[in-house]
Write a protein that binds this DNA or RNA. Structure first.
Lengths: 333, 333
DNA sequence: CCCTCTTCGGAAAACGTTTTCCTTGGTTAT
DNA sequence: ATAACCAAGGAAAACGTTTTCCGAAGAGGG
């Protein structure tokens, strides 16, 4: 590897001088010298060693991005948002998939600390609660912003799930539906709890008493939506006429199962999802869903983190707006 | 930040000794001393500075993963595969989205070099051809493995696109289809060229002459599939009865457009896609598609890279098997 | 002519590790 | 008793930067 010393020798100057032109330092450098140095850099194909640099400057221009699983279609949008502004601001992103495993989360937090990342963006999962607590509070603090709603006291970027879910259900109520079921996320998920709360409030405001059997617990995966249908009263006298799923993956599972039973959507049963993942608009019927601005969540999280790293004050929580994307799966009946 | 010196002082030993217990060195250490050191590490919450370490050892245990766009559903599977084995082998992954932009690719390659990554996995895009050439051959070599077919001379992990496409089209021929159209990827893409070649060979082997108008160029995005339908003879005397799309996204666009025109799938027109992205099985009708083992591509690429980094010989190209996933969109007519 | 600036450049310490080479004291074999 | 070895530990150089401090030379003012 060619080092700054080689460049210095080749240009006939000291390493100090090379460093100065490298960093566009204030210190005056004669144009000819600068030229010689740049020429040497080019000829030798010199790439300054970022580690040596970081060691000295005590910053790595690297951040960690911790999430449950990039293969879950909810996350790529976030990642892209984070990465875009990180790149723009000169940061590099280390990707960490935890599968919500406590062990893996801790292992990654350790590595990120050892690599001296400047900060981390944390998203998804109750894992934050335990694994993070010690890491973010017992040890030396690590600049962190959280995506999603967590009561960790760390700066957060989120979406108002209660309100968003409420609007989704109210949309169904306006359409004349009265018997509305919901397929939830796992009970430990704060997100799922919020969305359930929104459902309850909308129903209460509509003066409707929720019947037992209308609430089915899923796990945010396709299959749990598919299977939920089997446990729901979709025909008979006490049948439901609409289903609100806590994410698109489950909503699509629901649609698939309904279609296999010959039930028409939205004529017989309307369906609304949550997240507006890419393929919500691709399927037939196109899925009505709450649009979560995933890309913006990523963008905003990274911007907040950058502010934090610049030593500036940041709001404890930033809430981004959702909107209901009404498509074919829930039109006027 | 607490350093190895603090630990040494706190334990009443030299930094040499601390380093030795940290690295489980061969050098003998008395059990009591080791205990004292470990205790000090714990009490102080010491995390060894990986940069200082890397500077000395000349390896970072970090790799770069370069791809066009993580938001494209083809890539998360690959990323996950790479990340899983990277984690297992003690490597950390820096994610680089290039959008196939030459500038961005070069910018990232520069950063990766400066950060002294141990190696890089490169996937997707003709960008490799130019941006990489100088970077991988004119400068000091950088351990690299490529995913996908490229004639760069770098070790590659790939799938036989010609053969896979051929099998997909032959499947349609066996079903009795004779007038089969195809929606391709962009002409610069080697992948697209290979899939087109597979289509041609299957048709030739079936003794069918491809009519002009049967081949529509797309760009691997949903919309280009959707729009392709408008340019295809789907009714009338010379109508086609099957469409082979070069990826799932376009296939789904095709399906959407067909359904909007009231054309039944697969009764009127059969559709086959490529990639087996997650939602191929979610849509209705479920999409028949060539299953590309994306996760395994990632896993294998990282394994090959690890071999390379261990200084061992690696095969110039590893080809993984595809298989045709026959679903509802192409059943016996 | 002397003093003070300014411009340009360099020597060396510092960042936090690993590793080579030494030192010390004790044990074993002769 | 002595030589040879072994177990345990430390001092210091090295990795490749940045930055502080200093010096030389020339310009300008009095």
């Amino acid at each position: 590897m060619v080092t700054i010393k080689d460049v210095a020798r080749h240009a006939g100057v000291s390493v100090t001088t090379v460093s100065r032109v490298l960093n566009n330092s204030q210190h005056p450098i004669s144009p000819e010298t600068r030229e010689r140095v740049l020429a040497a850099i080019n000829e030798l194909g010199f790439y300054p060693n970022a580690m040596a640099r970081s060691l000295q400057l005590n910053e790595t221009k690297t951040i960690g991005l911790i999430l449950p699983d990039i293969a879950n279609p909810y996350y790529p949008g976030i990642v892209r948002g984070v990465e875009d502004v990180a790149h723009e601001k000169g940061y590099t992103v280390i990707l960490c998939n935890t599968d919500r495993s406590r062990e893996r989360t801790k292992a990654y937090l350790r590595v990120l600390r050892e690599k001296r990342v400047d900060g981390v963006i944390f998203t998804g999962g109750g894992a934050v609660e335990d694994a993070s607590r010690e890491h973010f509070f017992e040890h030396e603090p690590l600049a962190t912003v959280v995506i999603g709603r967590h009561k960790t006291g760390l700066p957060a970027v989120q979406v108002d799930n209660v309100q968003a879910a409420r609007e989704a259900v109210e949309h169904l109520l306006h359409l004349g539906h009265r018997r509305i079921a919901t397929v939830t996320g796992p009970a430990i998920s704060t997100t799922a709890r919020d969305r359930l709360e929104g459902y309850r409030r909308a129903m209460a405001a509509g003066g409707i008493e929720i019947e037992p059997g209308w609430i089915i617990e899923g796990d945010f995966e396709f299959n749990s939506g598919y299977q939920a249908v089997g446990r729901l009263p979709i025909s008979g006298p006490r049948n439901i006429t609409a289903i609100f799923a806590h994410n698109d993956l489950m909503a699509i599972g629901v649609i698939k199962a309904l279609q296999e039973q010959g039930i028409r959507i939205p004529q017989d049963v309307a369906v609304v999802g949550f997240d507006n993942t890419p393929f919500a608009s691709f399927i037939t019927p196109a899925l009505s869903t709450v649009a979560v601005p995933v890309y913006d969540l990523g963008v905003t999280a990274m911007k907040v983190l950058a502010e934090l790293l610049a030593g500036r004050k940041v709001p404890p929580v930033t809430t981004l707006a959702t909107h209901l994307e009404v498509r074919e799966s829930s039109i006027l009946k």
